Simulated assay, not measured.
Amino acid sequence: MGKALWLTRLFGRRRILGKASAALRTLGPLIRDVVSGRYRPVPWKALGLAAGAFIYLISPLDLIPDVLVGLGLLDDLVIVTWLLGKLDDALEDYRCWRGETPPQV
């Protein structure tokens, strides 16, 4: 099994990677609009998921220690990508407010 095929199967046929990518593209404008006061109410769930993904990524505490290079980094990738996929779902109201169509992933 090739590497790309393995990753595709691991992340559910690239859907979760597309959602994670869309969430990252939307996160910057969301934070800018919340800080400037243009977008209310504050989407606490979305901000919490983004913070959780960031904290898990930089935290020395992992499900699988990073000293196990292949597996340690893989668990970071899986957990952070999953959290960003959930973040994408939480950004639906914000995208509607901006007049954007939902991302096609």
Rank of each mutant, 00 (worst) to 15 (best):
M1V: 08
G2L: 01
K3A: 05
K3E: 00
K3P: 00
K3I: 04
A4F: 02
W6L: 02
L7T: 01
T8I: 02
R9G: 15
R9S: 04
F11N: 06
F11W: 04
G12L: 07
R14T: 10
R15K: 12
R15Q: 08
G18R: 07
K19R: 12
S21M: 07
S21V: 01
A22K: 01
A23Y: 04
A23L: 01
L24R: 15
L24P: 00
R25G: 04
T26C: 10
T26M: 13
T26W: 07
L27F: 14
L27G: 10
L27D: 08
L27R: 12
G28H: 13
G28C: 10
P29H: 13
I31G: 02
V34P: 02
V34Y: 05
V35P: 00
V35W: 05
S36M: 05
G37M: 10
R40G: 10
P41L: 06
P41D: 10
V42T: 13
P43R: 02
W44S: 09
A46P: 05
A46Y: 04
L47I: 09
L47H: 08
G48I: 07
A53T: 12
F54K: 13
I55Q: 10
I55E: 11
Y56E: 13
Y56N: 13
Y56H: 15
L57E: 14
L57M: 14
I58D: 02
I58N: 06
S59P: 10
S59D: 12
P60L: 08
P60H: 04
L61S: 13
D62P: 05
D62H: 14
L63S: 09
L63K: 07
I64H: 03
I64D: 05
I64R: 00
D66R: 14
V67E: 12
L68S: 07
G70K: 06
G70E: 11
L71T: 01
L71W: 08
L77V: 11
I79K: 12
I79W: 09
V80D: 08
V80C: 14
T81G: 11
T81R: 07
W82S: 11
W82C: 04
L84S: 08
G85C: 01
G85P: 02
G85N: 00
L87N: 09
L87T: 03
L87C: 06
L87H: 08
D88I: 01
A90D: 02
A90W: 02
A90E: 12
A90V: 01
L91A: 06
E92M: 04
D93F: 00
Y94K: 06
Y94I: 05
R95P: 10
R98W: 01
R98Q: 15
G99E: 09
E100W: 14
E100C: 05
P102T: 09
P102M: 12
P103W: 00
P103Y: 01
